[in-house]
């Protein structure tokens, strides 16, 4: 992979495409969670391919290609959401009721794509997707999204708490 990155950095579009296409499905699905429809999600993929190929020469550490690419994809998605809604808070306020015992593993869940899309705000989507879909560590997430490590954890726990509460809420009405 490192070889492909180096070739791509020299402008080799075939090498770049070979790299990019390994991740294009991930990028599409991530984008879909933000933008909520196929057409916009495809736009995000195209824009991500454009921005990343244009700037890959600036990538200093080829081994971080994946997290670098994800960061671009997240930014492209947020750009599009922002155009649609005018305001997107990248790092939402530290508010909401965090339970004392939030645990990543204790939400054994009936989470659906719809929950992810509808219950979480942009910042929470980012952290949940990076943590559980892309399997990034907290440190990698904090680097990818450029937010402090502590904030990453806070956002994740709040998101899980929200999902859990919503599920409980659903149960009540069943």
């Amino acid at each position: 992979m490192l070889n492909l990155v180096k070739k791509a950095q020299k402008g080799d579009d075939k090498a770049f495409l070979a790299l990019f296409q390994k991740y294009e499905q991930d990028i599409y699905r991530m984008a879909f969670v933000y933008v909520k429809n196929q057409s916009d999600a495809l736009d995000v993929v195209q824009e991500t391919a454009y921005r990343s190929f244009k700037t890959i020469k600036n990538l200093k550490e080829p081994k971080y290609f994946k997290t670098w690419l994800i960061r671009i994809a997240v930014n492209c998605s947020l750009d599009l959401v922002r155009k649609q809604t005018k305001v997107v808070q990248l790092k939402p306020e530290l508010e909401g009721n965090l339970s004392d015992d939030v645990n990543e593993e204790d939400i054994i869940l009936e989470i659906t794509v719809r929950d992810l899309i509808e219950q979480l705000n942009e910042g929470e989507k980012s952290v949940v997707i990076l943590r559980f879909y892309e399997d990034l560590t907290f440190k990698e997430i904090s680097e990818t999204l450029d937010i402090p490590l502590g904030t990453t954890k806070t956002i994740l726990y709040r998101a899980l708490d929200k999902l859990r509460k919503n599920l409980k809420g659903d149960d009540l009405y069943e």
Partner: peptide, 24 residues
């Protein structure tokens, strides 16, 4: 669980084509 759910999002046929368009 999250992976399973995410993977349910269908991949459109033109996905690769759009990646290529960005590079072009």
């Amino acid at each position: 669980r999250i992976k399973q759910e995410m993977n349910k999002i269908e991949i459109p046929k033109e996905l690769s084509e759009r990646s290529e368009m960005g590079v072009s």
